[in-house]
């Protein structure tokens, strides 16, 4: 369960004590069953108290947890098959944003997502899931291929944002994202978008224009990172917890704002505590929407998607 988040330390401490007592019992150094029972009860109470009252900033920590399942985990755990397709046919094959044919519960789909990688080496190779224009152009190429093959598209979003580098800017990060937003609006196959970790601004929405927008319970979706917002509006990046609160970036908030269609539950404390439970939840929900949307014609999907986005926003008139 390493590394432990600050607010989870009381739980980790008790769990450690329980483990020690169990070890002693196993080694026949005495009977600690009563003490273990007490501690276990205390542990459950702590969990209930802490996990039921997570602040937005704590949820940000969970969404970014290094042990949180990433795209690669989902590929191996929810897909019966995944055939990766590489390259944007223009410049490169971006490792931060990948995609390919996938089979989920015998449904054939095009699956596209940010891949942060699981180890430090992988993180670096995959640029921590921060894609360049090449990634967004590859994603679009695969979406158009899905349209031709009449396959539903699933996008799994997990990025801090599009990569703010010189090369990305030179190759038109803005144009690549803008093009995706425009083309996704008229894609004549179902699009199921799901935020699995961080939904970071333009880099997230660049593959996020779905008929439905799903979020894992502890995923976040924001116009700017809490740190970035704090640096600009509070002139102090350390005010990120306040900014996280103000930005209303949790799945619960997005549901209330009418943007997130369904929240996919995670085990207590977050997906990193139990990968397999999260995987089961996400797979069932994705399949449910793929089936539901596959009943609609291409033109109906485009019309409904247009209506959905037309309604997003709150203003006075």
């Amino acid at each position: 369960m390493e590394p432990t988040l600050e607010f989870e330390k009381p739980i980790a401490e008790i769990e450690e004590m329980i483990a020690k007592l169990k070890k002693l019992s196993e080694d026949k150094k005495g009977d600690f069953s009563n003490q273990i029972k007490e501690l276990e009860k205390e542990c459950v109470e702590h969990k209930e108290r802490i996990y039921a009252n997570l602040t937005p900033w704590q949820i940000v920590q969970i969404a970014r947890h290094p042990k949180r399942p990433v795209l690669e985990d989902y590929l191996s755990l929810i897909c019966d098959e995944f055939i990766e397709l590489h390259g944007d046919r223009r410049f490169a094959d971006d490792q931060a944003l990948i995609g390919g044919f996938a089979t989920l519960d015998s449904r054939r789909v095009m699956l596209i997502g940010h891949n942060k990688g699981k180890s430090v080496d992988e993180n670096i190779k995959r640029n921590f899931g921060q894609a360049r224009p090449d990634g967004y152009r590859k994603a679009l190429r695969l979406m158009k291929l899905a349209e031709k093959f009449r396959l539903p598209v699933i996008t799994l979003i997990d990025t801090q944002g599009a990569y703010p580098g010189r090369d990305g800017e030179e190759r038109g990060q803005h144009e690549a994202i803008a093009r995706n937003l425009t083309e996704m609006a008229r894609l004549e196959v179902p699009v199921v978008a799901c935020v699995i970790g961080e939904g970071g601004s333009g880099g997230a929405i660049g593959i996020g224009v779905g008929d439905v927008i799903l979020m894992l319970q502890n995923a976040i979706y924001s116009v700017i990172s809490p740190e970035g917002c704090a640096a600009i509006l509070w002139r102090d990046a350390a005010k990120a917890p306040e900014a996280a609160d103000a930005l209303k970036l949790t799945a619960q908030s997005l549901h209330e704002l009418g943007i997130c269609d369904e929240i996919i539950p995670e085990p207590a404390g977050g997906a990193h505590h139990n990968h397999s439970e999260t995987v089961e939840n996400i797979k069932n929900t994705l399949v449910k929407y793929v089936d539901k949307l596959s009943r609609l014609s291409g033109s109906k999907l485009v019309q409904k998607r247009f209506e959905k986005y037309s309604k997003i926003g709150m203003f006075a008139d």
Binding site: T182, E183, A185, G202, V223, K248, I259, S310
Partner: peptide, 26 residues
């Protein structure tokens, strides 16, 4: 750019406006 004070609602306007532009091609 985006208007931070409207959070993710501001971000979503990017998709909303592009959906309107996409329809002009039709």
């Amino acid at each position: 750019g985006a208007r931070m004070h409207e959070g993710v609602l501001s971000l979503m306007q990017m998709a909303k406006t592009c959906a309107g532009i996409a329809r002009l091609d039709k």
